[in-house]
Amino acid sequence: MAKHNGNRLRIIGGQWRSRQLPFPDVEGLRPTTDRVRETLFNWLQPYLPGANVLDVFAGSGALGLEALSREAGQVTLIEKNQKATKQLQDNIRTLNAQNSSIHMGDALQILPTLAKAFDVIFLDPPFGKGLLPNCINTIEQHNLISPNGWIYIESEQALTELDIPKHWRLHREKKAGQVMLRLFQIMKDTA
């Protein structure tokens, strides 16, 4: 049995509420805090049941596993770090989450290979790496978000300039410490 370093992630709602899962020490991995997840999932709750969800920088799985716990129909997780991916696989097995899949590798290389649009996308990349602009462009170019879908972006507060497509309407925004939370809804093109 693998030894764990004591890092624990608590699922805060849904079928696995209060369930604690381990996550590894990995540079740049910072699970979304309970308080931030509570806010985000309060915003998203009406849209989650049955939703097809993509967690682009899965890390500990805080967002993707929370979505599964709250009745998402399918969750796809992308994680580059091998240690984090292995722990995600173990946690998914522990939860017996049949409606999930994990892609290990660079998000910007994996995103174009995904052949379906998602109802909800979580973009919570490692801070200070400049990954958001390319992710936003790739999601747009490959039509990875459903009409009327939702995109959650978590970034460092210092990141003030994001080139957001015009049809992404800011639905909610909040600051939490040094973190900025933004939830966008994709508006159907009526032209």
Rank of each mutant, 00 (worst) to 15 (best):
G128I: 01
L63C: 11
A191L: 13
Q157L: 09
E140H: 12
D163A: 15
A67N: 10
E140Q: 14
D106Y: 01
F118H: 14
P24K: 06
G14D: 01
L162I: 14
S60D: 07
H142D: 03
L29E: 01
I102A: 13
L131H: 12
D106H: 14
G61N: 04
E161A: 15
Q109M: 07
G73N: 08
I145E: 13
G128R: 14
K83P: 12
Q98K: 09
A62T: 12
L181P: 10
L123Y: 00
T85I: 11
L48F: 06
P24F: 02
N143C: 09
I164Y: 15
W150H: 14
P165K: 04
A84C: 06
A97L: 08
A107G: 06
N99D: 01
S18P: 08
P147T: 03
L44Y: 03
S69H: 04
S101E: 14
I12E: 03
N5S: 11
L159W: 01
H167L: 08
H103A: 13
L54H: 04
T76W: 07
L77A: 08
L63R: 10
L54P: 07
S100Y: 10
G149I: 05
L54C: 10
P22C: 03
Y152V: 10
K80Q: 15
L40E: 00
R93M: 04
L114I: 10
V179G: 14
N81F: 00
P24G: 02
P125H: 11
L132A: 14
F127N: 11
Q185P: 01
I92V: 14
Q15H: 12
L48R: 15
